[in-house]
């Protein structure tokens, strides 16, 4: 790897390059724009990026695409498999299609945008990431969510926000069932302002006033035997 290639923009063809070769190129680049073609549902594409590069993936990806992303902007023009942008720290990861289970899982920061639907456990154990989903999210989304924001323009599946800590959940459509210790909360001006901003950043056209806010009732914060059924 020469320094000259580090800032080159280029097309990386996964039908010709190994995953290691493609990721090495992306991880070494400190700037620039790359396009990955023929992803073929392969796993761990564009994971572990540290620098503000721009990556567009033309097609569907497998597990852990853009995992642990820092600073980079990654766009998947297709669907993403399990664990999209898991443990993301910063930067933006966008999917034009659907995302499978555990999208944005344990993410600490940055923005994850899913233009289609996300399936089960979207935002599980999230720790500060902002996730915007254009469609629906599956069951147990924001399970044990600690911090950050999950914004859902469609509907939420069962047990939304189960065992939630301090993350904020905004849902425009219906919620099949709230999880244990997750309750609807008052939508205050600062929440509307936040929604207006994040919807704009996510490129989503929606009116903040159509959303409802959910968060922790904080009854599980200190173990009480009368809550035993909830543990």
């Amino acid at each position: 790897m020469t320094t000259a290639t580090m800032t080159n923009t280029g097309v990386l063809d996964l039908s010709a390059l190994s995953l290691r070769e493609a990721n090495e190129t992306l991880q070494a680049a400190t700037e620039g724009a790359f396009t990955i073609v023929n992803p073929g549902g392969r796993h761990a594409i564009a994971c572990g990026l540290e620098h503000p590069v721009s990556v567009t993936i033309e097609g569907h990806t497998g597990y852990y695409c853009a995992g642990m992303n820092k600073n980079a902007d990654v766009t998947i023009r297709g669907n993403a498999g399990t664990g999209l942008a898991e443990n993301i720290m910063s930067g933006t990861v966008r999917v034009t299609g659907d995302a499978s289970q555990a999208a944005g899982a344990t993410g600490h920061g940055g923005l994850v945008v899913i233009e289609g639907n996300a399936s089960a456990r979207c935002g599980i154990s999230m720790k500060g990431v902002d996730i915007v989903v254009g469609g629906n999210v599956g069951h147990m989304s924001a399970f044990m969510a600690q911090a950050g924001n999950l914004v859902v323009l469609g509907d939420a599946g069962e047990d939304l926000g189960d065992s939630i800590y301090e993350a904020r959940l905004f849902v425009r459509g219906t919620v099949a069932r709230l999880g244990t210790d997750c309750v609807e909360k008052e939508m205050r001006p600062e929440h509307l302002a936040f929604l207006a901003d994040i919807l704009k950043r996510a490129g989503m056209d929606a009116d903040p006033r159509d959303f409802r806010r959910y968060g922790s009732a904080r009854t599980l914060y200190h173990f009480k035997i009368d809550n035993a059924g909830a543990y």
Partner: peptide, 22 residues
């Protein structure tokens, strides 16, 4: 089990793709 097994099929680029609900 994973999309990569579907990726080689002819016409996959126009397929409707989704994840079965639990």
């Amino acid at each position: 089990s994973e999309f990569r097994a579907i990726a080689p099929l002819p016409g996959v680029e126009n397929a409707r793709i989704w994840e079965p609900e639990p």
